[in-house]
């Protein structure tokens, strides 16, 4: 029983998992290998390629947006976590409470009030002057990044990491040498934080890449949809190779590729001793 618990079951579970992941990774490529292995004809592969050509703009837009969103979100999270971890100031607990509230309310619940604000701003600001900011947000897919701009869970994780890793005496030394606070943050702190930023980036990336709700409600134009929305809007057909299966494979493939590219940082983060033994 002990032996089974210690090694056997875990190995079986992991091999099944790894096989499934390998299957997910190979699936989009398998459509191109299929004609050589006589699984299907070239015509079907051309038919699938057509779906990429049709949804080229969607794929490109959602890639662009996810990278912008992950970058901005990670940067904002580190900016908010750093003072909470290092400094002592008066409204620290209130800000933590605000972050908890942001974490507690999922963005789907806040979706319609968010739309209302944009709509009202559009009405009033266009009445005052033709300001392109609002129209830029209402009909572009950049809106899909908006609820992911403050990853509240990420702020807490980064705060924990800074508290356990960063040496406060080092900061004092830097201050005595004459470094400004901004310089301390960018030169001393940010390079240490890459492992934890990697895991926040992963959460951000998968969150933005897979969310279709904001695109569904906010983006009117059909050609400006994100990929997840264009997959979601098509009816499911199972069996023969269809464009939607291929788009779905791409939808699965990209985040796993991102995970593979930053896996070194993530493993470094997980193997670090974060929680101090009090």
């Amino acid at each position: 029983m002990n032996y089974l618990l210690k090694t056997g079951l875990a190995k079986i579970y992991v091999t099944i998992f790894m096989l499934y992941i390998a299957y997910l990774l190979v699936r989009p490529l398998s459509h191109f290998l299929a004609p050589f292995l006589d699984w299907n004809e070239w015509g079907e592969t051309y038919y699938l390629l057509q779906s990429i050509k049709d949804n080229y703009i969607n794929i490109w837009i959602s890639l662009k947006i996810t990278f912008i969103g992950t970058f901005v979100g990670c940067f904002l999270a580190t900016l908010t976590a750093y003072p909470l971890a290092v400094y002592e100031f008066r409204f620290k607990i209130t800000i933590m409470f605000l972050l908890v509230i942001i974490m507690m309310i999922p963005f789907i619940v806040n979706l319609i009030p968010m739309f209302l604000t944009l709509k009202l701003a559009e009405d009033y600001l266009s009445f005052i002057a033709d300001i392109p900011v609002v129209s830029f947000f209402i009909n572009r897919t950049l809106v899909t990044t908006v609820p992911f701009l403050i990853p509240a869970f990420g702020v807490f994780v980064i705060k924990q990491f800074i508290e356990s890793v960063v040496n406060k005496e080092m900061l004092e030394a830097a201050r005595i040498e004459g470094a400004t606070e901004r310089r301390i943050f960018f030169v001393l702190i940010l390079p240490i934080l890459f492992p934890v930023i990697a895991i926040i980036a992963l959460i951000q990336f998968s969150g933005i890449w897979n969310s279709y709700e904001l695109s569904l409600y906010f983006v009117g134009d059909e050609s400006l949809r994100v990929l997840a929305h264009s997959v979601q809007s098509q009816p499911i057909t199972i069996g023969a190779a269809s464009p939607i299966t291929f788009l779905n494979d791409i939808l699965v493939f990209v985040p796993i590729l991102f995970l593979a590219s930053i896996s070194g940082f993530i493993i470094k983060f997980i193997n670090a001793d974060l929680i101090s033994q009090e």
């Binding site: 992941i21 997910l24 897979n210 997840a228 939808l251 796993i256 991102f258």
Partner: peptide
């Protein structure tokens, strides 16, 4: 990995 893959 399953956390990264979309539920859809």
């Amino acid at each position: 990995t399953p956390y990264v893959v979309s539920d859809m």
